[in-house]
Structure formats: structure tokens, C-alpha cells
């Protein structure tokens, strides 16, 4: 894991394309996709939209974004059992989330928080960071290093 800081420049470099991709996925105007709008409350995203957004970002940037990548990266080296307990994010897990999702205002991290509610925190900036990391991974891969992840959040329900 590489908790390397992501600079504002890196984010702004990918933001226009991320915003357009999100506007396409959410059926809204690109102007509405401001960097810090909560996607669920602000842009009416539903759970399946996150899957669609990730699929489209993979296409747009020619990167791989494994399902559940955001939560996986936030958890980092913390064992899963310490990150969540019975469907809720633990206090230490919440701390990891705050650090990882540094773009999200502190007052939006409410405790207790269900794992299933983590996507409520996501903003366009969250996905800009996902893309930046994925692009870095591509570069690392060409340099012979591999990255991977596993599935988790943004599940459609039924």
C-alpha cells in the first residue's frame, strides 16, 4: 500500500474527464458535477450508478478499478475484522476512512456508520483520486509492479 499524497494538480488534471463521465452516468449537466458535491444526496446517485461510474471511468482512462477499491484502499493494512464489526465501521476504521477520504468534510463522518453507508460520503473528488491512483498503478505496472484489490461497496441490492 502506498499512502502517497495526491496533489490538487493531479486531481484537477483528471477532473474534467471524470466530471463528464459522471454527468453521462447520472444524466445531469457537467456543471453540476462540482468537486465536492455528495453524489447520493447532491446528484441523486443510486447504488447501481456507482457501478456504472466505475465502468465508464475504466473505459475513459483505460485503467482497472476493482470493485470495492475505495473501501479496500481506505482499510489499507488494517485487518477486515478491525475495520468493520457486524456491518458497522469501527472507530479505528472510521479514522482510516477520514484519512483516506480527506476531501470529505469531517462532520459527514457520523458514528456509528454502516459499511453499506460509506458510499454516501463519496464525491467527484473521491473518484478523481481513484483515477489518479489507478493511473499510477498502470505506470507502476509498466515498471513491473502489480496491484490488486477485491470487491465490496457499491452493490446493487434486491
Amino acid at each position: 500500500m502506498m499512502p502517497t499524497e495526491i496533489s490538487k494538480d493531479e486531481i484537477m488534471a483528471v477532473y474534467p474527464k471524470v466530471a463528464q463521465t459522471m454527468a453521462d452516468a447520472l444524466g445531469c449537466d457537467v456543471e453540476q458535477v462540482v468537486l465536492n458535491v455528495p453524489l447520493i444526496e447532491g446528484l441523486d446517485a443510486e447504488s447501481i450508478d456507482f457501478l456504472d461510474i466505475i465502468f465508464r471511468l475504466e473505459r475513459a482512462f483505460k485503467v482497472k478499478i476493482p470493485r470495492g477499491k475505495i473501501v479496500e484502499d481506505a482499510r489499507g493494512d488494517l485487518p477486515e475484522a478491525e475495520f468493520e464489526r457486524k456491518g458497522y465501521v469501527t472507530e479505528v476504521g472510521l479514522q482510516r476512512l477520514r484519512e483516506h477520504l480527506s476531501e470529505v468534510p469531517a462532520d459527514r463522518f457520523r458514528s456509528p456508520m454502516k459499511v453499506a453507508d460509506i458510499p454516501r460520503l463519496f464525491t467527484p473528488e473521491t473518484f478523481c483520486k481513484v483515477v489518479v491512483r489507478a493511473l499510477r498503478a498502470v505506470q507502476a505496472e509498466t515498471a513491473g509492479v502489480l496491484g490488486s484489490g477485491d470487491a465490496r461497496e457499491a452493490k446493487a441490492d434486491g
Binding site: 457501478l51 458497522y88 452493490k155 446493487a156 441490492d157 434486491g158
Partner: peptide
Amino acid sequence: CLLGALSLDNETPERASRPFDATRNGF
């Protein structure tokens, strides 16, 4: 699978469907 609606507990199939359990993760 594409919808992410299914439990991915492939190693424990008999435990995978656990309605109302706190750790449930798909059908």
C-alpha cells in the same frame, strides 16, 4: 454479477445466503 448483487462467499457456499445477519453481503 455485473450488478454486484450476489454474495461472493464462494469458499463457504452453505453460509453465503444469510438473511438478516449483520455480515450478509448479497444473495
